[in-house]
Amino acid sequence: MPLIDVSIAEGRSPEQLRDLVSALHRAAEESVGALPENTTVIIREVPTSHWSKANQTIAERQAAAQAAPLTHATPVETAAE
Rank of each mutant, 00 (worst) to 15 (best):
R61H: 01
R12K: 14
S31M: 14
A27S: 09
T40L: 11
E10Y: 02
E77P: 00
I58C: 02
Q16Y: 00
W51V: 08
A59E: 13
H72N: 13
A23Y: 01
R44Y: 03
A68F: 07
V46S: 06
A54H: 14
A28W: 00
H25G: 05
R12G: 03
D19N: 09
T71H: 11
P47K: 10
S13P: 08
L17C: 02
E60L: 11
D19A: 15
P69R: 02
Q62V: 12
E37Y: 03
R18G: 05
A59T: 08
S13T: 15
E10N: 06
H50I: 02
A27T: 08
S13L: 07
G33R: 02
A80V: 06
D19C: 01
E15G: 05
D5G: 01
T74A: 05
N38A: 13
I42D: 00
H25P: 00
G33E: 05
H25R: 11
P75L: 09
A54Q: 11
I43R: 03
V21Q: 01
E30R: 13
A80Y: 02
N38W: 04
S22R: 14
H72R: 15
R44T: 07
L35S: 08
Q62G: 01
A9S: 11
T40Q: 10
A27W: 01
A23T: 06
Q16P: 03
S31D: 07
P69E: 07
E29P: 00
E45R: 14
E45K: 15
S22H: 06
P69H: 07
A59G: 06
L70N: 13
L24V: 08
V32S: 01
A79K: 14
A59K: 14
W51Q: 09
S52N: 05
K53N: 12
E60N: 10
E81Q: 13
E15K: 14
